Simulated scan of single mutants.
Amino acid sequence: MWLIYALGSAIFAALTAILAKIGIEGVNSHLATAIRTGVVLLLAWGMVFLVGAGSGVAKISAKSWVFLILSGLATGASWLCYYKALQLGEVAKVAAIDKLSVVLAIIFAVLFLGESFTLKTAIATILIGAGALIMAF
């Protein structure tokens, strides 16, 4: 099931780039990011209430709160950078460099989460990184 959601994420992320590039024309990138964030906020809370997950808020540990807040800050910084890059550059190049996040996520997962780094993972990581750089330059 994770694969279906991951593919959905990829499709919607691709649409995000195209729709944002069209929508950001003549709009300050920070304002555009704020609008996007507001929509995401409404959608996310709508889903919480739709599936009845709101009662879980009280059960979240302090550690989880800290890391979820830090994750939110990282997401916000990523979106601000992404929208500015889209405003200044071509979608294909911006999206390719953005996908270096896959390479960094793998490296961080190995370093900070103790996830395994096999020969297959190493080769794939190099290929993804090389592909992103070739697309951008």
Rank of each mutant, 00 (worst) to 15 (best):
A122P: 00
I126G: 06
S29P: 15
A10N: 06
I126V: 15
V39H: 01
V110P: 05
A77M: 13
I11M: 14
W65K: 05
L19K: 01
L7P: 10
L19A: 13
M1H: 08
I69W: 04
I69L: 12
V103G: 00
G56S: 13
L88Q: 15
N28L: 02
K63M: 08
I4K: 07
I24R: 08
V51Q: 10
G56Q: 10
G56D: 12
E115L: 02
G52D: 13
G54A: 08
V40Q: 10
F49M: 15
L15V: 12
G52N: 14
Q87I: 06
L100E: 05
L15K: 03
G52M: 09
T33G: 10
G46S: 12
L19R: 05
L100Q: 05
F67C: 03
T125F: 02
I11C: 12
V103Q: 02
L119S: 00
L43K: 05
Y82P: 00
K120T: 11
T16R: 11
V39A: 08
V110I: 14
A17Q: 07
H30K: 08
I35L: 14
K63R: 14
L43V: 15
S61M: 04
I128Y: 01
E90S: 10
F108A: 12
S116A: 06
T125W: 01
F49T: 09
W45E: 12
W79R: 01
H30E: 05
L113A: 14
K63Q: 00
A124E: 00
K93C: 02
I4P: 07
A44W: 07
I24T: 06
A62M: 09
L111K: 04
I126N: 02
L42P: 02
V66E: 09
G26M: 11
S78C: 09
G72Y: 04
A122S: 03
A95D: 08
I69P: 02
F12H: 07
G54E: 10
A85H: 11
F108I: 13
I11W: 04
I69T: 13
L42A: 14
L31Y: 09
G72A: 06
L73R: 02
A105T: 15
A92N: 09
M135S: 10
W79N: 00
T33S: 11
V51E: 02
A34N: 06
T121A: 01
L43A: 14
A85F: 11
R36G: 05
G52V: 13
T125H: 03
K59M: 11
A20E: 13
F117D: 01
S64D: 15
L73N: 07
I4H: 04
K93A: 07
A44H: 01
L127G: 03
L104Q: 01
M47D: 06
A77I: 12
K93E: 13
F112D: 09
L7K: 07
L70G: 13
I97G: 03
V110D: 04
